[in-house]
């Protein structure tokens, strides 16, 4: 599945980012800024950041990574580089997995930076294992990447691409238990949320914040991984060598 050309592509994507320092700074610092605002708002009730901090550790990076990957692939499409790539021996999987690999690496760094910020600056004190929380938060960010890759296939213009996030992510955020516990939602919305990847990402982090261990969240983690694989497969299959 993963070949030499996958790594060439991942390395090319990282090289491109290296020339764009401001984007890297935004990726690393933007989630910290958002989390910092929340922590500041609830400075008098530290219980809030202990309870919701881990959840935000997953949600903020996921939003950022979704946007970045969906714009990155759209850019390839519009600059003609994708058309050229598709006439070379690169396999479609090399292209998608190369992007996923590069951004997963970035997501991991981002997760570590954000967690360090949450613990040392915001004073987050989660009940569950911190490393497990980091792991699931990174997994959520990777989920954001691959959902962005899959969604970008549906967008043909920049205007459409930027709306893929509100279209794909916001309904999942709303029904994922952020506003209302899922068991209190109307039945149909509860069914909807059960079919959505983000629900599991948020559930696992909420449980870990409350002191759950790996055994308690392994079902949800398995679901996230399955959705990551599914979204990758979708992104690979919707990529076309021949375009109209």
């Amino acid at each position: 599945m993963i070949t030499r050309l996958t790594f060439s592509t991942a390395s090319r994507v990282l090289h491109q980012l290296r020339h764009d320092r401001r984007t890297i700074a935004l990726i690393m610092l933007l989630p910290c800024l958002l989390l910092g605002i929340v922590a500041w708002m609830f400075a008098d009730t530290p219980m809030v950041i202990d309870q919701f901090g881990p959840l935000l550790l997953g949600v903020f990076p996921m939003l950022v990574m979704f946007l970045i990957t969906s714009v990155a692939t759209l850019r390839e499409r519009q600059s003609g580089t994708l058309e050229r790539l598709m006439t070379t021996p690169i396999r479609r999987a090399d292209f998608v997995l190369g992007y996923a690999l590069a951004f997963a690496l970035l997501a991991t760094l981002q997760g570590l930076v954000l967690t360090a910020f949450a613990v040392w600056v915001c004073g987050m004190d989660a009940r569950g294992d911190l490393w497990l929380i980091v792991g699931v938060a990174v997994l959520d960010a990777v989920l954001g990447c691959v959902l962005g890759l899959a969604a970008s296939a549906l967008a043909t213009t920049e205007f459409q691409a930027v709306q893929m996030m509100p279209l794909f992510i916001f309904p999942q955020l709303l029904t994922g238990g952020l506003l209302m516990p899922r068991d209190q939602m109307p039945q149909v919305l509860e069914w909807f949320s059960r079919a959505m990847p983000l629900t599991y990402g948020m559930e696992a982090l909420r449980d870990l914040a409350a002191g759950a261990d790996l055994g308690d969240v392994q079902g949800a983690v398995g679901a996230i991984c399955a959705f990551i694989v599914g979204a990758l497969a979708l992104a690979i299959l919707t990529l076309r060598r021949r375009t109209p």
């Binding site: 030499r4 050309l5 060439s8 592509t9 390395s11 090319r12 090289h15 491109q16 020339h19 764009d20 600059s79 003609g80 580089t81 058309e83 050229r84 790539l85 006439t87 070379t88 021996p89 690169i90």
Partner: peptide, 29 residues
């Protein structure tokens, strides 16, 4: 795909890479 070289009308190279980085990537492919 190994035997045909194609140049699109609009230059299709990565603007945020150097010429050499572009060439190295495509040479790998």
């Amino acid at each position: 795909r190994h035997r045909v070289g194609y140049v699109t009308q609009a230059p299709s190279v990565y603007g945020d890479l150097t010429i050499r980085e572009n060439l190295r990537y495509f040479a790998h492919l």
